[in-house]
Every structure is written in structure tokens, then in C-alpha cells.
């Protein structure tokens, strides 16, 4: 578990660095080095740290612990092959964490970032529909069962492409610089992260790194099935580069448009579920 945790943190930071690099190259900039996010996190941990005077201290600090804790738990669930519903819960809880980050400081920028995180609740519904579609095919929600099903019947990516698409969109909406990343809009300085500096920010970066590893790894497990470690790394990089391309060539949507698109995807997915015969 510890070694997986360190791998997830380091791997997630490197993936986020790669993400920035690919975006920069697509936009014909040199971009930061791939290990930039690792340096970033280290830099933040070595910075002088305090709590803003207007903040609610308990929540301000506690929410960072919760952020790291929930994604560590998500990683444990993925490793144990547990229920995908728990990951779904953690993913939705990440919204509450963003919310808490923004609200706890008392800063208006953070507050509006937090309000946007509530609006972005629309991004969770495609995930739920995607989960339901997977359950229809595999008859189970345990990750280990789903992987075993794919070992027999081939990858779900081919069996249920719409579910994979919905999940892809969900992951996309949590990537930095994505068209759906309305919580981090530049007009709000850094959105919900604005007032968390120093060690708090380093903690948030760690949580984000685990989050990235967990979500990308989960996508591969759910839609490609069992992979050898080498193939897993290659696949995760390919998946990330595809996400980076989308992020690089699309502008950030206005909050309203973002919610509209995600709601439309949900409607399409519900139609798909009806087609599968889940909803009579």
C-alpha cells in the first residue's frame, strides 16, 4: 500500500507535468519540464506557511487532510478491487472538498471558485450513468469482477463505447486546463486554491496527483481490463496525451455552457441505458 501510494503520488505528478508539457507543445510553446509538478510540490512544502486571519482554521486545515485521505482511500479501493460505487462516492466528495477549500478562507475568489464547484455537480451524472451501464454488462460493481469479466469477454471499451466516452468526459472535466475546469477559471485567480499556499497547497498537489493516478488507472481497469505493468504504463500515457490534446485545443467553457454540455451527455447516456433495456 505504501509503495503504491508513493508510486501514485510520483506518477500522478509526473503525469500532470506531462500534461502541461503536451499542452505547451501543441500550442507551440517550449513548456515546463515534465518533472515540473514534482518540483512544484517540493517548492510549496518548503514555503513559509500560516493560516489567513479571516479563515476558519479547523476547516482550512482539516479539508487538506480530507482531500488527501479520500483519494488515498480511493487508491486502496482500486488496489483491493472493491466496489466502483465507493470510487464514485469519493469522486463526488471531491466536489465538497473543493467547496470547503474555497469557502474556508473567507476570500471572495475562493468563495466563487467554491460556488462553481457546486455548479459543476453536473459532471457527476455522466459518471453515474456510466457506472450503471457497466453494471448492466458485467452484473457486478466490484472492480475485480469487472476486470475478470473483461479477461473473458474482451475490453468494455469495445462492448460499451458510450459508457467509456462518458467516463472519459468525467476524467476530462477534472483535468487542469480542460474545457470543463470552470472551478479553476483564471478570472478567479486560482479558484478554490487561491488562499491555500505553502504546505496546504503541497498537500492539495499530493491529493491531485493521487486523484489523477486513480482516475486514469480506473479508466484503464474498467475499459481495457487486465494489463501487464508495462502495457499499463504505456496505456496510461496514451490516455493522458489524448486528454492533453483535447485540453490544448479547446478553450475553457463558460460555466453555463459547461453544465449544458454535461447535461446533454447525461441525456444521451440515459437514452443509451433505455436502449440497453435497464429502464423499462
Amino acid at each position: 500500500m505504501i509503495e503504491a501510494l508513493f508510486a501514485a503520488v510520483l506518477g500522478g505528478l509526473l503525469l500532470l507535468g506531462l500534461h502541461r508539457k503536451v499542452i505547451a507543445r501543441v500550442q507551440q510553446r517550449p513548456g515546463p519540464p515534465v518533472w515540473q509538478e514534482v518540483l512544484h510540490t517540493l517548492k510549496f512544502s518548503f514555503k513559509s506557511t500560516w493560516v489567513p486571519e479571516t479563515a476558519s482554521p479547523g476547516l482550512f486545515v482539516g479539508i487538506v487532510l480530507v482531500a488527501i485521505g479520500i483519494w488515498t482511500a480511493a487508491l486502496a479501493v482500486v488496489l483491493a478491487g472493491g466496489s466502483i460505487l465507493i470510487i464514485f462516492g469519493v469522486y463526488m466528495l471531491h466536489k465538497i472538498v473543493e467547496h470547503g477549500f474555497g469557502l474556508s478562507s473567507g476570500s471572495p475568489y475562493g468563495k466563487f471558485g467554491a460556488v462553481r464547484s457546486v455548479i459543476s455537480a453536473a459532471s457527476e451524472i455522466p459518471l453515474f450513468v456510466s457506472v450503471a451501464a457497466i453494471a448492466v454488462f458485467t452484473g457486478s460493481l466490484a472492480i475485480s469482477d469487472i476486470v475478470a469479466y473483461q479477461a473473458v469477454n474482451g475490453p468494455l471499451l469495445i462492448i460499451a463505447p458510450p459508457a467509456a466516452f462518458a467516463m472519459y468526459l468525467v476524467i476530462l472535466s477534472k483535468m487542469p486546463f480542460s474545457p470543463f475546469a470552470i472551478v479553476e477559471g483564471k478570472e478567479l485567480v486560482s479558484g478554490y486554491k487561491t488562499e491555500h499556499f505553502g504546505v496546504w497547497r503541497a498537500g492539495l498537489e499530493v491529493a491531485n496527483a493521487i486523484k489523477t493516478s486513480v482516475l486514469l488507472g480506473l479508466f484503464l481497469l474498467l475499459f481495457l481490463g487486465p494489463l501487464s505493468p508495462f502495457a499499463f504504463v504505456v496505456a496510461i500515457v496514451i490516455l493522458l496525451v489524448s486528454l492533453s490534446f483535447v485540453c490544448a485545443v479547446t478553450p475553457m467553457l463558460a460555466p453555463f455552457d459547461s453544465v449544458t454540455i454535461q447535461a446533454l451527455v447525461t441525456v444521451v447516456m440515459l437514452g443509451y441505458l433505455v436502449l440497453l433495456g435497464v429502464i423499462p
Binding site: T54, A55, S56, G58, L59, P108, K111
Partner: peptide
């Protein structure tokens, strides 16, 4: 346990 924050406006 936590005290409320003071919103800056």
C-alpha cells in the same frame, strides 16, 4: 470544532 470564517467583501 471549527470556528466560522469571516468573509471578506
Amino acid at each position: 470544532v471549527s470556528r466560522p470564517e469571516r468573509q471578506v467583501e
